[in-house]
């Protein structure tokens, strides 16, 4: 297997690899999220009994990690590659190792290790057991068997793989500063680095996240999203217009995602005290649990109508 030459080639190889393993290659979710796990293709689809296999890139935002594009490894906006398979296949570890090979990591030259790392998301009311995967001492992926999401036991169990794309690509490409990483092929007429694409936005968002975002507005948005989420889920299952059973889980879950991201922004603005922090996390968890409760009442969540 040849070594990839650019960031995008690594992404394309992962897409091809997981498509070949039978995953539906989805597109990123069109909302601001802190991690690929928030995509409804993971959070909601991990619930219920229906089988599921998907892979996608998810742009992720962590406002507190902004460093104005100066830190070699830290970004407030970065990409995760997410693979989600339910039920987790018995050869998931081998499939994962195959994906490393596909992007040019030769297991006969590198030291690849599965090191205990239990995963927990207090905002999603979710936890699982698994590992962080080390390649030559560097964490390149998270590997998790979901046990609970939104307070519901996962049965069957979903296997989740999360690759931190920038860090992984920097290692494969031998780049020391993320901004120097070739985004497209360096041999093309218009070669672009990661910095060409993102340096300016990192600066802009770092300034806005840390110093300018209007915290009063954000606080209001948080409460509005929280209220809207609850209101959506309170609506009766039967739609009066069509007469069909339509539980609006995804619109409600969008509000949950929104609340979660606004909380992250408020955190970056430094207006949330340690004690308040727990309370906010609890409020978001309440929303995600309500969404999970609603999702298992839908067909995608494994609900079947009573036979008449």
């Amino acid at each position: 297997m040849t070594t990839p030459r650019s960031f995008q080639e690594i992404i394309l190889r992962l897409q091809n690899y997981w498509a070949a393993q039978g995953c539906a290659v989805l597109q990123p979710y069109d909302m601001e999220v802190g991690a690929g796990t928030f995509h409804p293709a993971t959070t909601l689809r991990a619930l219920g009994s229906n089988a599921w296999a998907a892979a996608y890139v998810q742009p992720s935002r962590r406002p507190t990690d902004g460093r104005y594009g100066e830190n070699p490894n830290r970004l407030q906006h970065y990409y995760q590659y997410q693979v989600i398979i339910k039920p987790s296949p018995p050869d998931l570890q081998e499939l994962y190792l195959g994906s490393l090979e596909a992007i040019g990591i030769d297991a006969s030259l590198h030291d690849i290790r599965f090191v205990e790392d239990d995963w927990e998301s207090p905002t999603l009311g979710a936890w699982g057991l698994g590992w962080e995967v080390w390649c030559d001492g560097m964490e390149v992926s998270q590997f998790t068997y979901f046990q609970q999401v939104g307070g519901h036991d996962c049965a069957p169990v979903t296997g989740e793989l999360t690759y931190g794309l920038e860090r992984l690509a920097m290692y494969v490409l031998g780049v020391d500063h993320v901004m120097d990483m070739p985004f497209n092929d360096p041999q093309t007429p218009i070669p672009l680095t990661y910095g060409d694409v993102f340096r300016q936005t990192e600066q802009e968002y770092s300034r806005w996240n840390f110093d300018v975002a209007d915290t009063d507005v954000l606080l209001r948005h948080f409460e509005e999203a929280e209220a809207e989420c609850a209101r959506i889920l309170e609506a009766p299952a039967e739609d009066p217009k069509t007469g069909n059973r339509i539980i609006m889980v995804h619109p409600a879950y969008d509000q949950c995602i929104k609340a979660s991201h606004i909380f992250n922004l408020l955190d970056a603005r430094g207006v949330i005290s340690v004690t308040e922090r727990q309370a906010y996390i609890g409020r978001v968890r309440t929303l995600s649990k309500a969404c999970a409760d609603a999702f298992v009442q839908t067909e995608a969540g494994g609900w079947t109508p009573e036979p008449a």
Binding site: P87, G128, L129, Y145, Q147, A155, P156, V157
Partner: peptide
């Protein structure tokens, strides 16, 4: 100390 389920098994 902590155990898990996997796949479709119990």
């Amino acid at each position: 100390p902590k155990s898990m389920r996997w796949g479709a098994g119990s």
